[in-house]
Simulated assay, not measured.
Amino acid sequence: MNSPSGGAAPGPAVSETPPDSASAPPAIPHERRSRTLWLVLAVATAAIVWSMNGTGVSVASLVSGWEGAQEILTGLFPPEVDRPLLASVAQAAVETLQISIAALFFGTIMGLVLAVLMAGNVGFPAWLASAASFVAMVFRSVPELLWALVFVAMVGLGPTAGVYAISLHAAGLLAKLVSEQLEAVDPAPVEAMEMTGASKVAVGLLSIIPQARNNIASLILYQWECNIRTSAIVGFVGAGGIGQALVVAMQLFRYQELATLILALLVLVIVVDQISRFFRRRMGSATR
């Protein structure tokens, strides 16, 4: 039946509610978010206070130890610069550089092999990936200083023990970080290569690693910087380099000689950092 105005009768009213409104997840109330934030802050604050009390960190401990620190700091100046000492420091710095480079070489080889085995998108058997992950975890979980003690007992005092110790720890770190970079690449080229019947090694070397090579190179260069600093630490247990000279100077209270060694280590770290930054900037991995 037509309406009085001659038009068609109006149909049923159409709901203006969007069809997907019923499936939208409920918003988290603002009050609940605030309570969660305050809870996290309270737990973090309690953990910090508990840790500081347990370790005895306080302003009073710094004040009480100021006299000893002042004695050491005043003894560092002026640094000793006689010719025989500078020649010895230069030799220790060269040895430290050699330790860092040799450790980077061995650590990179082991780390890359473990990373390829660990990466889920390469597709090695689960038992092999788990074994590689466990080995990498052991390598990086043991501090370099403990590895150095082990290798000093095995091969004796000197830089050889330092190279082996730093290599293992570097391999464990690089394996974890590089495997994460490999798993983050674009999967499309990987799948295309797998469809051609390529082996897992070929897929890793020709499709996955090339996509992540800049980030991998940046990680390796950063590991070199870490090796320089670590080589000074392992020297404290007789693993060669500047660290071994540092501990001798400290034990004999030769503070001016200690200052010269610290300055040499600082210069070495700055030089390696600038070289690493230069190469990372050329690869687009550094902005400054």
Rank of each mutant, 00 (worst) to 15 (best):
S3A: 13
S5M: 09
A8Y: 03
P10S: 14
D20H: 08
A22S: 14
S23A: 12
P29Y: 05
S34D: 10
L37S: 10
W38Y: 13
V40D: 08
A44W: 11
A46P: 00
V49Y: 13
V57F: 15
V57E: 12
V59S: 05
L62Y: 06
G65N: 11
A69R: 01
I72K: 00
I72Q: 00
T74F: 03
F77L: 08
P84W: 14
L85P: 01
L86W: 10
L86K: 04
Q98P: 00
S100N: 08
A102R: 06
A102S: 10
F106H: 02
T108E: 04
I109D: 01
A115N: 03
L117A: 10
G120E: 10
V122N: 06
G123C: 05
A126E: 13
S133K: 10
M137L: 14
F139Q: 00
R140K: 07
V142M: 07
E144S: 09
E144K: 01
L145A: 06
L146F: 12
A148T: 01
V155M: 04
P159C: 10
A161N: 02
G162S: 07
G162L: 09
Y164I: 13
K176Y: 04
K176D: 04
L177C: 05
L177K: 02
A188V: 13
M195C: 10
K200S: 09
G204P: 00
L205I: 14
S218W: 09
L221G: 11
N227Y: 08
S231G: 05
A232F: 02
G240M: 05
A245K: 03
L246K: 01
V248M: 09
M250Y: 07
L252G: 02
L258P: 00
T260S: 14
I262D: 01
A264Y: 06
L266H: 00
V269M: 12
F279G: 00
R280F: 12
R282N: 11
S285D: 06
T287A: 12
